[in-house]
Design a protein around this nucleic acid. Structure first.
Length: 933
RNA sequence: GCUCGAGUGGUGGAAUUGGUAGACACGUUGGACUUAAAAUCCAAUGGCCAUCGCGGCCGUGCGGGUUCAAGUCCCGCCUCGAGUACCA
């Protein structure tokens, strides 16, 4: 019969399901271990081979930890809200819920076939009201919180109101917009609406008029991480800047903590780096430059700038404001007004994409105003230009053309003066008029700079900050690139906000009204007035008739805290119980793609830190260790059609003809050899195709490309499972290469793994599938082989090197085959080693060996060093007539080798005299290496 | 431009701390078994030279360096990939 994977895999998948083998509960007698996968969006095309890569890795680890005695939480669910289902609904009228349900069933079926050890009783779906109730609930908590910078944590707004009632806003240091000072009396005198407007400036989820990324094509706003190079990440549609009233999350309050937290978690450096860049902390100073009073009716107008190079302030020869800067209108002189207004409207009508592609074009206008450089007292002109962004820093800069390349280019273009204030160590000052570019480096000595002359740049920065603080014209500050996350989407298929409006002000629903369920609508399109689809819903209002919010939450809302819900997924009164959180704590191992670096993985950390501040979760960081599995690219196959004919030429002969390559479906190609019959039947036009063969075969060309339907290179796991079985797929995906590396999918090697499993089967089962096993005592050689494998396979799993782990296992089986070993003593631990990788066949062998319990929780074998070092010779090698060394020699080393080694040792001794010998390495037939130190 | 990562046989990739480079697998070639094929098994497989055999030389993107010893460490380049970008 042989290795009947179909029977075996079906049998054990049913067994695990019927016995709820992987269902876990809190168990204080066992240490916990939480292994998490990034849950998938259930798209219509089902799983492809890239999906399971990370899932297989995490499953191996989860199974390994179970063998090691851990109580393993290994859940799975669905990130069920998303645009494709909504767009499908717009086209067909099918409710996204129906599409999503259908896709989930398909995903589940595919996942089950691979034999994952998920605890499905804990499944969550972000679109399930029982789940999104807690997404809405968390939103309410965010709205009801503010960030107290003095205690450096989020607090309930009641503490803020208490303070306002007692002492106004004096002494409050909060994350958020600046608010005008007010007293306790002022506060009490404000109307409720005025009070709410003030509070809104403090809340961690807040409604405001803000510049958003608007994507007209998608009809929705997008968060910064959903925009790549001025185009929407999804679909690649142009994105424009637009002022809109939107909900935002004040994630900037957590900028510093999000940065510092990276030091305490075990994540790939590259990913930490991406988050650091995204947060973009830069240290510098803010300085106020006063505008020359002549131009502003003798009023005091100060322009605040942010600079990371306060040392170069003596070189500031002009200023530049962003065109949108609020002071522009006030300071523009009447002669310049027309030009300035024209420039502003030109900037405004330019799309974000145009702006980005035309960065090389230098544009700007002089406002007619002058400012006073506070350290030199020089009058310097104030310009506006779109190279200064309103969204970063203060939206205004002091321009130092000598030491900033953008300022330099601007000064050259508009003929503004350039002063050198930093000179490179060892160089002499030179005439900036002769320069090709500015000197931007922070290495050098200050010149032309008054009290900081002669200092290094580094010292000058410190000294200048001290000086401007002393003069009261500025202070040392830290600036972040991180922006608050826009939280509204003009879509249907997302979580409704638990918000209603009264007098135009938003109010939260009572918590006992949650979940606020997504209503049915007739059309999934925006209304004709441009309102979101929810505006189509009938009776979309509270019982009292107040209108409900018509926006929905973005995709990252539901995924930000899903790992917490898995801890206690069926709790109806809480997000999760304190007990569950105290036991499961945090995710010990998180596996997923790095495309979430600036999105989900930052939002989740923010979400978790917020709940930590509220005392709801016990760990500040949600994901202790994270691994990025590489992306699997497609491997396309090509046939070469001779121009103007229906004749195809094999790959290596194609140069002899004028050919045109055509994608062929990879399912009709095996090891790059085309199945000609299938190809002829593929399409009518190929029915009578002729072929020029090489060695009787048609060889296809190949190329690594993105997996896509149009390239006919999408590999879905089902076909492979049908052909080879899940265990082969699992082993092969791991065998493909290092987990973290991107790699093309290539089935050319899958036969090798399949061959191996069949060999394993044949080794222990006869033709009638009776196991060939005996109770004889294992020999030293057999034990050595086994223990070598235990050591290697174990350490490889522990360091996530699954490909080498598979190899080590194969080596052991091959050695045992050579030894004709059929001993139970060897096979039992060996099968446990195999179990995480290929659980179905491992279970089958385990059961055949007479165990009735199932292998999943069997203790993992531990290697014994004693079996590994077999031949240890104590070979005396004396250095300086004193030292003796014990040298461990490989088993296969002959007497002659040892003699030779010894001779070399005597020679080596000559140069080791007077040195301390630390380690001796014997290499057969070669040399003795002696490590001195 | 900046930041990070990677370059090893025909291919995917091993080499955990500097210590026999190329494990393991694919592919290829030859052989066994078979009427034949599939399956399976055995042998060879980095390059060059030598050859009955023993063996020798060169080899981890390029150029230097440190070391008894470098794929691994240091300096300078080249190429590819990823992220990010008038961020002051």
């Amino acid at each position: 019969m042989g290795y009947d994977f179909q029977r075996i895999e079906k049998k054990w998948q049913e067994y695990w399901s019927n016995n709820q083998t992987f269902k876990v509960a809190i168990d204080h007698n066992k240490p916990k271990f939480y292994v998490l996968d990034m849950f998938p969006y259930p798209s219509g095309s089902g799983l492809h081979v890239g999906h399971p890569l990370g899932y297989i890795a995490s499953d191996i680890y989860a199974r390994f930890k179970r063998h090691k005695g851990y109580n393993v939480l290994h859940p799975m669910g669905y990130d069920a809200y998303g645009l494709p289902a909504e767009q499908y609904a717009i086209q067909t009228g099918t409710h996204p819920e129906i599409t999503t349900e259908k896709n989930i069933l398909r995903y589940r079926e595919q996942l089950d076939k691979i034999g994952f050890s998920f605890d499905w009783s804990r499944e969550v779906r972000t679109s399930d009201p029982k789940y999104y109730k807690w997404t809405q609930w968390t939103f309410i908590q965010l709205v009801n919180s503010w960030y107290n910078k003095s205690t450096d944590k989020a607090e309930d707004v009641s503490s803020l109101i208490g303070h306002f009632e007692k002492s106004g806003n004096a002494g409050i240091i909060a994350a958020g917009e600046e608010t005008e000072p007010f007293t306790a009396e002022d506060w009490k005198a404000y109307s409720e609406k005025e009070q709410q407007e003030i509070l809104m400036k403090y809340r961690l989820a807040y409604l405001s008029n803000t510049m958003v990324n608007w994507c007209p094509e998608l009809g929705t706003v997008l968060a910064n991480d959903e925009v790549k190079e001025g185009l929407s990440e999804r679909g690649g549609h142009p994105v424009e800047k637009k002022m809109m009233k939107q909900w935002s999350l004040r994630i900037t309050a957590y900028g510093q903590r999000l940065l510092e937290g990276l030091d305490n978690i075990d994540w790939p450096e590259s990913l930490k780096e991406m988050q650091k860049n995204w947060i973009g902390r830069s240290e510098g100073a803010s300085v106020i430059f006063n505008v020359d009073k002549e131009h502003v009716n003798n009023e005091n107008v100060g322009i605040e700038v942010f600079t990371t190079r306060p040392d170069t302030i003596f070189g500031a020869t002009f200023m530049v404001l962003a065109p949108e800067h609020e002071l522009v209108d006030r300071i523009t002189s009447s002669e310049r007004r027309k030009s300035v207004d024209e420039y502003k409207s030109w900037v405004k009508n330019r799309s974000e994409r145009e702006r980005m592609t035309e960065v090389k074009n230098i544009t700007g206008e002089f406002t007619g105003a002058y400012a006073i450089n506070p350290l030199t007292n020089d009058r310097i002109p104030v310009w506006i230009a779109d190279y200064v962004l309103s969204g970063y820093g203060t939206g205004a800069i002091m321009a130092v053309p000598g030491h900033d390349s953008r300022d330099f280019a601007f000064a050259n273009h508009f003929n503004l003066p350039v002063i050198q204030v930093v000179v490179k160590d060892g160089d002499k000052p030179s005439d900036p008029g002769t320069w090709d570019d500015s000197y931007d480096s922070k290495e050098g000595i200050m010149i032309n700079s008054g009290f900081i002359n002669g200092l290094s740049v580094h010292d000058a920065i410190r000294t200048t900050i001290a000086k401007i603080e002393e003069l009261g014209i500025g202070e040392g500050t830290v600036n972040y690139r991180l922006r608050d996350a826009i939280f509204s989407r003009q879509r249907y298929w997302g979580e409704p906000f638990p918000v209603y409006y009264k007098d135009g002000m938003p109010y939260m629903l009572d918590e006992d009204k949650l979940p606020l369920e997504l209503p049915k609508v007739e059309s999934y399109l925006p209304t004709s007035e441009g309102n979101p689809p929810l505006a189509n819903a009938k009776n979309w209002a509270t019982e009292e008739g107040y209108p409900l919010e018509t926006n929905t939450m973005p995709g990252f809302a539901g995924s930000s805290g899903y790992y917490l819900r898995y801890m206690d997924p069926n709790n109806e009164v809480e997000y999760f119980s304190k007990e569950a959180n105290n036991y499961w704590k945090d995710v010990d191992l998180y596996i997923g793609g790095d495309e979430h670096a600036a999105g989900h993985l930052i939002y989740s950390r923010f979400w978790n830190k917020f709940l930590f501040d509220l005392g709801l979760v016990c760990e500040e960081e949600p994901f202790k260790k994270l691994i990025n599995q590489g992306k699997i690219q497609g491997r396309s196959n090509f046939v070469y059609r001779i121009q103007g004919s229906n004749k195809f030429v094999s790959y290596n002969l194609r140069k002899e003809y004028e050919t045109q390559p055509l994608h062929v479906d990879i399912d009709m190609v095996n090891n790059d050899v085309l199945d000609i019959e299938t190809f002829r039947n593929w399409r009518a036009e190929f029915k009578d195709a002729e072929f020029v063969l090489e060695d009787g075969k048609y060889i296809c060309g190949h190329e690594v490309e993105k997996m896509s339907k149009s390239k006919h290179n999408v590999q879905n796991p089902d076909a492979l499972i049908d052909k080879y079985g899940a265990d082969t797929l699992r082993l092969y995906e791991m065998f493909l290469g290092p987990l973290e590396q991107d790699k093309p999918w290539d089935t050319n090697g899958i036969e090798g793994v399949f061959r191996f499993l069949r060999k394993l089967w044949r080794l222990y089962f006869d033709d009638n599938d009776n196991i060939i096993i005996n109770d004889e005592k294992a020999s030293d050689k057999e034990l050595k082989s086994l223990h070598k494998a235990i050591k290697k396979v174990t350490s490889d799993i522990e360091r996530f090197s699954f490909n080498t782990g598979v190899s080590a296992f194969m080596i052991c089986v091959n050695e045992l085959a050579d030894l004709k070993c059929h001993k139970k003593e060897i096979l039992e631990p060996l099968v446990v080693l195999l179990s995480p990788y290929a659980p179905h066949i491992a279970e089958e062998i385990w059961q055949t060996l007479g165990n009735d319990k199932g292998i999943s929780y069997v203790e993992y074998p531990v290697h014994n060093e004693k079996y590994l070092v077999e031949n240890t010779f104590e070979y005396p090698v004396s250095f300086n007539g004193k030292m003796r060394f014990k040298i461990s020699l490989p088993v296969n080393m002959s007497k002659q080798d040892i003699e030779e080694a010894a001779i070399n040792a005597e020679e080596a001794k000559k140069w080791t005299e007077d040195k301390t010998v630390r380690k001796v390495i014997v290499v057969p037939n070669r040399i003795i290496n002696i490590v001195v130190g």
